[in-house]
Structures are given as structure tokens and as C-alpha cells.
Design a protein around this nucleic acid. Structure first.
Lengths: 201, 201, 201, 201
DNA sequence: TATGAATGAGGCTTCATTCAT
DNA sequence: GATGAATGAAGCCTCATTCAT
């Protein structure tokens, strides 16, 4: 960052950050194995040894990107309803807000999100934790008042996680929908279902 | 074809099938790049040239597995509602049946499904087509009578595809749920939502 | 040859001969290394083990073809002038006759000739021997009366061999010239040269 | 470029040139298929990946050698008689000069010449073009004054090409003759023939 | 901080060739 | 005489990674 009189106007931190950014894009677009260190350094206009000056290995830089994803604000754990009194009006809003935040983060950090949420072997763990937190909240004392009990919360939670991944891929990252729109749609579907209210049941 | 008591290793069709099965499992578990031909043939108790007796290349066997997945009965296209009079009672059943079939196929052909639906580069296309078909059916004349119109059918369709992938991974392939249970849960969630009917809206 | 009641109407000798003929063509057209046993047997409609029933190895069948070439009638050694009284009239005729025979053999056994005279590692030896015999005849007692002595016989002999190879390739095997025409042209050039007689020298 | 006393193995251009030179010799001596990359790199005292640092593939380095051969000075096209007034004295000299140049180049770049003129699949084309150029010159206006017309120029041209190849192989590259001597002999033979002038015709 | 040059390790693939029937 | 099935041996190539400057 500081411009401490280096030649070429770029210092180590800059190179490092550049490599990291390019690596993120490459990994996100081509996956781990199809991404070559040689490609990353070429796009960053540095040489291969320079890469190893900043990162111990290919695995290391990938791991660092995973960490960057996981280090997102904790608030992003969908719907932190815990310890609050929620009624039928605010509950949906709260869930939607949480979802919006997550999706907005995905949109703002597309490559990071693809790596940490879709590509990484650790993504399974990440999604599992997300699902677990959601599930816990669906089971929260009080939530039972507003939700059916005839569907397994684990199914709902994982279903939601699956929807997030798929809709991020097909609607958010394509620019077809904003984070807010998507969150709104998801909440509407999940809370009220597709069935017309007027239909017999 | 006839299995006339041949000695070990003298039935080519069997070797081929064995290789294909092992390859499916390896690809499904480790992905394309981490799967080594050397591992496949070792597990099949043959040598590497034998592999090339039956498959042109690593890519070729992977492609064949993709094809095997794509060649699943066309009936498996979720919910073929087309050309039928559907009322509020039968519609959900029909959707559930279609879903059950798909999920049962996924369960019966786990490795194939993981390859064709999750790992393959062509999986994106496969899922897109599935989503498109679902979307088309949601828009069918008549369907509108039973469904809300305040949610984008494209969102629902892709959300469903995402749910299928995630729930297959976490609930079906782990043995936690049967195809039928899962289909039932998904339909319930999507049609009726989580909200208690008695709550105010 | 004899049709001794074999099934499929082909006996061993027939298979062997067929393989040999196909191998000759393949080697001639594609060279030793680019010719695959698998191709030969496929074209002969037999399996690989059958090949090894008749030939010890790829080298062996190639060697056999070399031998077939080398076993051509000894008379084909260009211009056997030896032990004859030759005058200025008959000498050119004799040379031409010898050349014609060689070229006719080349034309009749194109693949064999390409193998034994052009492709084989032993072709060097074959051409050397041909050149040596020619050279010896140019030096024969008596020949000196008709030939210049200001050109090395070794040069002439090897030059002739080179001409034969090149002209067989470009004029004989393309069908542009007959063996006779070619032999005539070669003799004319070598004996009388290109220079017009009327020119000053 | 500057050879600033670098330590062993630290000059890429040198490594490349070394590999190229060794490869030329290996190809020239053993042919394409019998030449192994492993041999080339062993002789160059580098490892196999180093080879691929400088050449894309085995085919590529071979092609580069072919190109080096083809890139010889254009003056080397035998006998550029075009656009000059040639009489009976100078014509033979000119032809001889051209031939000498070609043969000298062959002698100075033996491996390259063997590759580009004898071994390469493209050698056929190379020789054809050389023959065509020679043929064209034999047909040049004016040339007819000095040459017989009773022999096909195409035969002469290809015969000459064949002589060049064979004599380079047996007399030039063995050190038995110099380029100049050979050129002189060839011209003498072709222009004046072997027949004594004093003989009857 | 940066690099030109080099390499260890390991994968994919292709042959000619043989075994057991 | 013939074959379906299998293999030993070996080559080409690519990659992440490091050495020496």
C-alpha cells in the first residue's frame, strides 16, 4: 500500500494482492486443477518464483482464498433470530434481511464465494454449518408457533442452502436478479408455498 | 454375452463393465483430476493397457459415464404434467411422483448421478434443462389456477433443482431419507410453505 | 494355394501371403514405424496372434520383405557387361537393357522396391553394392576405350544410382514414364550429355 | 545475448541452441522415431522438462530443424541463370557455381541437410521444388541453344536432384570429395556425357 | 523484491507381443 | 489354424516447485 520508493511503483504487498485477486478469478472460473500457477503469474506480470515468495504453494493460496470467504462478517449467517421475540410480522423480514446480506456478499465477492461455497472441498463443511445454523433457528423456541411441524427442519434448512447455491449461480451471478429480489422470492416461496390460498386443501 | 464359465479375466465385456463401475465410483468420490487411471486399473486388477483396450482415453470413459447418466428414462423429467387435466388433488401427487422417480434414480445410481449432475462440466447444462422443463410445466395452462403468480417460475424451478442437488447429497446419499420421503417433504414445503395456516398474514 | 478343405476357404499359406502383401504396401506407404501391426492385421481380416503365427516379429516380416527384394534375379544388376566384347554400338544398348530390367522390376514390385531400395536401413548397403558393380563395369578392360577418363567412375556409378532412385519415385511410380523410356533417357543423358554437339567445347 | 560469465546451465539461449544441435545430429543419424527426447536431453546434460521449456514437442523441434534447412540463402537454388546472357563458356561455370553452393551448404550443415533433404516427410516437396526450378531454367529461352532437346528436361532435373542426394551421402559426407570437386564432376558428366568425343556415334 | 533457468515427480498413452483356450 | 483378452516396456509431456543470482 505505502509507496516506499520501490521501483516500478509496485511493492510486495501489491504483487501479493494482485496474485490473490487473479488467482481467485482463475480458480472461480476454471476450478482448482485447471488453474495453472503459470497462468496466474502470467496474468499478474510476475514470474513463478515471485509467486512462491508470497505463497507457500498452490494449495496454500487456494486455502487462503477459502479463509477469506469464511472470514466474512458473522452477521452473514442467515437469520440470526436468536434471543429475540419475533412475531408473525417481523420474522419473515428478519429472515429476508439475513438472506439478503448473504446474497449481497456473494454478489460482491463472486469469485470468493464460488471458491468457498461451491468449489472448495471444504465447501461441504461450510454449507453444512450454514444449514445447521438455519436448522437450529427453525427449531428455536418460539419459531414453532409460526412454522408447520410436519416438515423436518433439516430438510428445510438444507433445501434452503441448495436454493441459495443454485440461485446464486443462475440468477444472481448472471445479473438477472439482485440480492434483495432473490431473498424476497426465496422467503415468499418458503413461507407461503406455491399453492393459491383460495384453493381447497 | 453368455457367461460360459470362462476363466478369470477372459471376458472382455465383464472387464469393461468392471472398469466402468470402478471409474464411476472413483470419479464420483474424487473428481476428474484426482482420479488416476492407475488407480482404476489397480482396483480392477488389470494393467493399464487393458484400460485402453476398452476406452479411448480418460476423457472418453468420463464422457461415457456422463452419457449413461443422461440416458436415464425420459420419464424422469420431473413432473410431466403436460396434456393432462390436473386438479388440486392430483397435481401435488403427480409432482411428487416425478420427484420420487428422479430421486430414486439418483439413489440407485449414486456415482452416475454425482458425475452427471454435480461434477461434470456438462452438469450445468443438465441442470439448466431440468430447470427449464420444470419452469415450462409451472407455466402450463391450467397450472396457473393452482399456483401463485407472485413468484417467478424461473426462481421456483431453479430453487427446486438446487434443493434436489443439496438434499440428494445430504439426505438421500447418506441414507437419512428415502427417495419417497424426500420427494414428499420437498413437495410439501414448496406447495404449502412453512407458515402455519392459522397465522395471520 | 491348394484348397485342402479348410473352412472359410483360406488356409495358412494364404493368410501368410496376404499378410505379407499388405505389410509390404503399408511399409512402403507409411514407413516402418508408422506402420502398425494392428493395421496390417485389420486389413488382412485376421487377429494379432495370427500374425505371430506366421512371423516372429515386426522386424522379421520387414526383413522378409527386404529379402524378397534382394532375391530378385541376379541379372538385374545393371549392365552385366563382363566377359563380352562390346563396341560402341552395343555397349549403350546393353546398359539400357540392364537399366530397363531393373526399372521394370521396380515398377512391377513397387512396394518391395520402395522397402528394399529406399526405406530399409539395409538399402544403403544395397545401393552401395549396386554402385560398386556398376563402377566395376565402368572400369572393365575395354570400357576405357569408350568412356572419358576425366570423371571418377565412382561418381558416375553413384550418380546413376541416385538418378534411378529419384526417377523411379517421380517418374516411374507416378506412371509418367515406362521403364523403357526412363532407361533410354538415362542412358542418353549419361552417354552423350546435354551439350549440343555443334557447340564449341 | 551478452555472455557475462554465467555459471553452468544458466544461459537459456545456449541450452536451446545445444538441444537444437544435438537433436539435429540425433535425428540425422537415427531418424525421427528412433530419436528419443530422453537421449537428446541426456546428451545435453539437462532434464526432460528443460526440453519442453524450449520446444513445444518432439514434432516441433523437428519442424524447427526443417525450417532451418529451408531457410538457407535463396541463392542456393541451383543455377540461377535467369535474366542473364549466357554463352557456351559461362553457362557451365554458372551451373557449377550453383551446385557448389548447394553442396557446400550440405557439407557445412550435414545434419540439417539430411533432415530437410532426406528424412523429413517434407523432403519430397523440397526436392520437387528444387527439381522444378532446375527444370524451369533448363527450359529458359536461350538455354535451348546449348542443350539437346531430345531429353525431357524433367528427367534431367530430377536425375540431377537424385545425383545430388546420392553423391552428398556417399561422397560429400564421407569426406571423399569436396563440394567443388563434386559439382565439377556432376557438371562434366551431365554436360558432356561419358562417351569419348572421338568415338563414332 | 525479483528472476532466468532448471528439475522431481508423476500422469497418460501406445506399441509389439503373448497367454490360454 | 485361429482368437479374445491381456500385458511389459517404454515414450511423451505437464506441472508445481526450487536454485542461484
Amino acid at each position: 500500500m505505502a509507496q516506499r520508493g520501490r521501483k516500478k511503483g509496485s511493492d510486495g504487498e501489491a504483487s501479493r494482492a494482485l496474485l490473490l485477486r487473479i488467482a481467485a478469478d482463475e480458480f472461480a472460473e476454471h476450478g482448482y486443477h485447471e488453474t495453472k500457477i503459470s497462468t496466474i503469474v502470467r496474468k499478474a506480470n510476475v514470474t513463478q518464483p515471485t509467486f512462491y515468495l508470497y505463497f507457500k504453494s498452490k494449495e496454500a493460496i487456494f486455502g487462503e482464498l477459502e479463509d477469506l470467504f469464511r472470514a466474512r462478517p458473522a452477521s452473514l449467517t442467515v437469520g440470526s433470530l436468536i434471543n429475540e421475540e419475533l412475531d408473525g410480522f417481523t420474522l419473515p423480514r428478519r429472515i429476508e434481511e439475513g438472506l439478503t446480506e448473504v446474497l449481497q456478499f456473494f454478489k460482491d465477492h463472486r469469485s470468493l464465494a464460488r471458491i468457498g461455497f461451491c468449489l472448495s472441498p471444504a465447501a461441504a463443511e461450510v454449507k453444512m454449518q450454514m444449514a445447521e445454523r438455519i436448522e437450529a433457528q427453525l427449531r428455536e423456541k418460539g419459531a414453532a408457533d409460526y412454522f408447520h411441524s410436519n416438515v423436518d427442519a433439516g430438510i428445510v434448512a438444507n433445501g434452503l442452502v441448495g436454493m441459495i447455491e443454485r440461485l446464486a449461480t443462475t440468477k444472481l451471478w448472471t445479473g438477472e436478479k439482485t440480492a434483495h429480489e432473490l431473498a424476497n422470492d426465496i422467503v415468499t416461496i418458503l413461507l407461503y408455498g406455491l399453492r393459491r390460498k383460495t384453493s381447497v386443501q
